[in-house]
Simulated assay, not measured.
Amino acid sequence: MLTLHDFSALRIDGLAEDLARYRGRVVLVVNTASACGYTPQYAGLEALQRRFCAAGFDVLAFPCNQFGAQEPGDGEAIAAFCRERYEVSFRLFAKVDVNGPAAPPLWQWLTRSDTPYPQAVKWNFTKFLIDQQGRVVRRYEPALQPEEAVEDILRLLRLA
């Protein structure tokens, strides 16, 4: 059975990252966009990163231009926007499609039929909570604010 740890992804700087480095950590994978009504969620994602990073938690953000062309910039522009506007410290990855044949293997796995949430991503800021073993344990639709995932994160980190 595949897990998050079986994949790699291109970081926003173009370097490949083996996602096995997140083994033993709780991860929130999210598709993002800088010109979306949900873009202010970057602040909430950063708050989660800062609050729980030392306890074993990471946000992994994947910019996506598939929904309303709301992420038109290149990697440099996206990174600058996130840094200057939201002071993000969490990992930003290269812009991807999250649905369809151009979606990288990670996103195909997150949405395929043998996962707990077998459906295509509907919009920007869809979030997947992944446990320390790399398994998807929860999916949050875009309208859910990042802070609404705190109880689930605490439970997985065994802090609640």
Rank of each mutant, 00 (worst) to 15 (best):
T3Q: 02
L4V: 08
F7Y: 03
S8Y: 13
A9S: 10
R11S: 04
I12T: 07
G14E: 05
G14P: 06
G14C: 07
A16S: 08
E17C: 04
A20R: 03
R23S: 12
V26S: 11
V26Y: 13
C36M: 02
T39S: 11
P40W: 06
Q41L: 09
Q41T: 14
Q41Y: 04
A43R: 02
G44M: 03
G44C: 02
L45K: 04
E46M: 00
R51K: 02
R51P: 06
G56F: 04
V59L: 02
F67L: 13
G68D: 02
P72M: 14
G73T: 03
G75F: 11
E76T: 14
F81C: 06
C82D: 07
Y86M: 07
E87S: 03
V88K: 15
F90Y: 00
R91C: 11
L92C: 04
F93G: 06
K95R: 12
V96W: 07
D97E: 14
N99C: 13
P101L: 14
P104Q: 05
P104E: 00
W107D: 06
S113T: 06
S113A: 13
T115I: 01
P116E: 00
Q119E: 09
A120P: 14
N124A: 09
F125L: 11
T126E: 12
K127G: 15
F128H: 13
L129Y: 14
D131T: 13
Q132K: 05
Q133W: 13
Y140P: 12
A143T: 14
A143S: 02
D152G: 09
I153K: 01
R155N: 09
R155C: 05
L156F: 01
R158P: 01
